[in-house]
């Protein structure tokens, strides 16, 4: 895996290919470069989503390309949290990004881009789960169905958790996390993936009022710590 810079360079051509007919005007280009070089700490993921959308509409795809790299993990875990198998989740994430292109002109408020993506990913995930159930149902109704071809979609992460969580403290934290309510787990994972939590986006994505996100995050974290302490892990408290 190359660094972010290398990736941006390599894929600039692919993502920007439909806009090669018209070079961006110098002033716009300067503006885009200014956005890119501004320090990341001063803006949230939601701000970068807005800048990517605006830049994309104006005909340069660099910010969008970089934003796709940055936000794909958040979309991935949002989709997976709804119970979508890995292979299908791959499609759903792609579809969500493609839908952003299709709706690029209809998002009236650029600041709502991240929220739009998370909500779209979540709905598409539910739809995929619904379709998956319907397919399973159809399969079980076919008497001559080949057992080898049915249900070949893997449902879990590659490799048992024990293999990736060799460290005792890692296992403890993971086990503790699993003991929290589902929405708590989803909230903590989303918050942990945004370098500066964007509560407006996250609240819409998991259907929780904006005002309660901060408090809920605090409660989920405190609960996580309490579970860890019960297990004898004290270094977090």
């Amino acid at each position: 895996m190359g660094g972010p810079g290398a990736r941006r360079g390599a894929y600039h051509g692919a993502l920007g290919s439909w806009q090669t007919s018209e070079a961006p005007r110098a002033s716009e280009h300067e503006a885009a470069r200014g956005e890119m070089t501004s320090p990341a700490e001063t803006e949230s993921l939601g701000d970068r989503a807005a800048a990517a959308l605006v830049g994309y509409r104006e005909g340069h795809a660099e910010l969008m390309s970089e934003f796709v790299r940055e936000a794909t993990p958040m979309l991935w875990h949002t989709v997976r949290a709804q119970g979508v198998p890995r292979e299908v989740a791959d499609d759903v994430v792609q579809q969500t990004w493609a839908a952003l292109v299709a709706h690029v002109e209809s998002i009236t408020e650029p600041q709502a881009t991240l929220k739009w993506l998370l909500v779209t990913a979540r709905r598409a995930a539910w739809e995929a789960v619904r379709k998956g159930r319907a397919d399973d149902h159809r399969r079980t109704e076919l008497p001559d169905d080949d057992a080898d071809t049915a249900a070949t979609l893997p449902d879990t992460a590659p490799g048992p958790e024990a293999e990736v969580l060799r460290d005792e403290r890692d296992r403890m934290l993971w086990t503790a996390l699993q003991q929290l309510p589902g929405r708590c787990q989803e909230l903590l994972r989303l918050v942990s993936l945004a370098d500066r939590p964007d509560y407006r986006s996250i609240s819409a994505a998991i259907g929780m009022p904006v005002g309660s996100i901060g408090a809920t995050r605090g409660r989920c974290l405190a609960k996580l710590r309490a579970v860890l302490t019960e297990q004898g892990e004290t270094s977090w408290t």
Binding site: L15, P73, L100, L177, S192
Partner: peptide
Amino acid sequence: LLERVAELSGRVDPVPEGLVERSRFAMTLA
């Protein structure tokens, strides 16, 4: 603690290799 949660999520359920590239190409096609 949140950083550790993010790191573990990434290890237990990693984003598939190449998904970013596939997503970018899907956007180009869209």
